[in-house]
């Protein structure tokens, strides 16, 4: 297939005009160190202390914390508020933006506001369908898709214009991320979709949970053949499975999560399934680190956040150089 796309090298984009404005995540990735990000679930609460308590678990153990934006289409504290609270305390955050709940007017306003509040990293997502969440009767917005969202935010930053063409007086200096799911069909299209995301402005990629190493390797080989590995930073998603039952539940109910049978069997056969889940996670991190083009990992330890420091420590990845 000949390419219709010109793929820019987004790892070499000039950093933010104000060098002091470059965040830790961007600095770590650009320096060639292995980056560690972790998903921080926003509380169902209006109390900032709950946010700080959750962040405290990760502080000093990760390079950035992702604040999810109504993940699983469930209602929680907004990602922009959560990131703003954390930025005030000096934490590095990745603000997730989903296209499910807001249209282009609201999203662009949020991006400007977020940057004004000290948020440096954005992750542009399509978002889960409303049917999986706690408000299945809600109107799904999807005015933009993750690609057009990336392009619009890159336009705000690089061309200093809104999607409408109207000029900004000050552009948001953001490090732009996107998601990838190498583990869902159509598999052959996934690397091309990654190419589109890079062309639209993605500088870093965080993937869906990786439990199927061969499938991820295949994806990375294809991405390499398309010349994508040097053009963005890729952080595969990992996470500890609490038990075989949780794994089975996730397989059935969380869209896009693929857990192979052998992982399930290994969990079932373990005496302490929770510990086994962490061991699997750490082994995966170490194996992923050996793969060409992997710049870090993104840890999603849903309801097992307290184990993130242990996982990072035992995997020996924080501040490590890329192998």
């Amino acid at each position: 297939m000949t390419s219709r796309l010109t793929i820019p090298d987004n790892t070499q984009l000039p950093p933010a005009e104000d060098a002091g404005n470059v965040g830790r995540l961007e600095r770590v990735l650009r320096s060639g160190q292995f980056a560690v990000t972790a998903e921080l679930a926003p509380p169902d609460s209006a109390d900032p202390q709950e946010v700080h308590a959750r962040a405290q678990l990760f502080a000093g153990h990760v390079d950035a914390m992702n604040a999810t934006d109504g993940s699983g289409a469930n209602c929680h504290m907004s990602s922009v508020a959560m990131c703003a609270l954390l930025a005030r305390e000096g934490h590095e955050t990745v603000m997730q933006i989903s296209c499910r709940d807001r249209n282009r007017i609201a999203i662009q306003g949020d991006v400007l506001g977020a940057t004004a509040l000290g948020i440096r990293n954005l992750l542009c997502l399509t978002g889960d369908g409303v049917q999986v969440g706690d408000h299945p009767e809600a109107k799904p917005v999807f005015d933009l898709d993750s690609l057009s969202l990336l392009e619009i935010v890159a336009g705000l930053r690089d061309k200093h214009v809104f999607a409408s063409g109207r000029t900004l007086t000050s552009a948001p200096q953001v490090f732009l991320g996107a998601a990838a799911n190498p583990f869902a069909p159509p598999f052959a299209f996934r690397p091309h979709r990654l190419a589109k995301k890079i062309a639209a402005g993605a500088q870093f990629i965080q993937t869906q949970y990786c439990f199927d190493l061969p499938r991820f390797q295949d994806f990375m080989h294809r991405a390499r053949d398309l010349g994508l590995l040097e053009k963005c930073f890729i952080l595969p998603g990992v996470g500890p499975l609490a038990s075989a039952r949780t794994a089975e539940w996730m397989r059935r109910h969380v869209p896009g999560v693929h857990i192979p049978d052998d992982v399930l069997k290994r969990l079932e056969g373990a005496r302490d399934q929770k510990a086994e889940g962490r061991d699997i996670c750490i082994e995966l991190i170490q194996q992923l680190r050996e793969i060409e083009g992997v710049s870090g990992v993104h840890i999603m330890a849903h309801r097992q956040e307290a184990f993130v420091p242990e996982i990072v420590k035992r995997a020996g990845i924080l501040g490590a150089s890329k192998s």
Partner: peptide, 14 residues
């Protein structure tokens, strides 16, 4: 259902 114009979302089933 998400009116995506640039490719599949990450939620496609196996």
């Amino acid at each position: 259902p998400k009116h995506l114009r640039n490719g599949p979302c990450g939620g496609v089933m196996q």
